[in-house]
Write a protein that binds this DNA or RNA. Sequence first.
DNA 1: CTCCGTGCAAAAGGTTTGCACTGGT
DNA 2: ACCAGTGCAAACCTTTTGCACGGAG
Lengths: 168, 168
Amino acid sequence: MSPREKRERLQQFEVLCRQRGLAITVQRRRILELILDRRDHPTADGVYELASRHLPNISRTTVYRVLDTLVELGVINKACSPGAATRFDPVTARHHHLLCVQCEKLIDLADSRVDHGVELPEVGDLAFQIKDFCIQFSGLCAACRRKPARRGAAPPKTDRPGERRGQC
Amino acid sequence: MSPREKRERLQQFEVLCRQRGLAITVQRRRILELILDRRDHPTADGVYELASRHLPNISRTTVYRVLDTLVELGVINKACSPGAATRFDPVTARHHHLLCVQCEKLIDLADSRVDHGVELPEVGDLAFQIKDFCIQFSGLCAACRRKPARRGAAPPKTDRPGERRGQC
DNA sequence: CTCCGTGCAAAAGGTTTGCACTGGT
DNA sequence: ACCAGTGCAAACCTTTTGCACGGAG
């Protein structure tokens, strides 16, 4: 990530913290910086490794908690693992998923019109051989739309379209 | 799933087992049946719960092993969790992922042309409010294309396109 | 009859929680 | 000075592994 973009992201992070009354601690700042420098989707443990170099006394617990916070602020995203445990799907034909970002319910979507427009990307330079794809739509399920908010989460903001909430 | 389709799937399962010299055990058959009846993406533990009703002495270990086997046979799919641990992504703008089904490397794909064709599905009946989406392309990364196969996996079959290998 | 598959127990990750102390605000 | 945030340890949950027995081929 470019130094300029990185600076902007850090600034955005501080603004969000102040908005929500969250402290801007060394740990939060440093961990965010570390992740912004990465393009390889580190695991929590990987982040801990990296963070340890800068903050020798940091604990894994803190790393987990900070990552959670950063995800809630929306400055980073979780990749994969909507729930803790792996889930299994009897449908092996191509289909897509609706993931509720609140209760993490996973719903099959058998609408084949959806993916007709998807063109396989050109990945010649990556030498990646694509075999299939799956689209994950994220949002709120019927039940969660009725419930106002979840514990500890931000107050219900206006739903700016384009705002990123899902994880993938 | 319709009784007819279910019967077909079970038959396909038995054929695949015989092809690969795998035993058709009560546990494998029953667990497959259970999952075919579900549309709610049960976790391994959920499957264990269900299976326990029919096979009181079954162990969690077996459930895990059977699920693995069924996924390798291709009669069910894993949903989510390419790796054991959650991974974090500094990129919060919409982008997509290339997932290597062998080494489980996750690569960002910033090709916005890809998703221009995606039309949001009609989910009025589900009352699901879609906020965003993410496409996961699965296949083989450059490194794994060079390596022949992985431990214990099926021998390198011809790559029929349309064959489903990825998990999502 | 021969192994593959199972069950049990124990270990190995990954993540969360309770509690006391420390450092931002 | 107050309280959110941290560090430590222990608990917890999910998954994997080693080993001996039993049943499918």
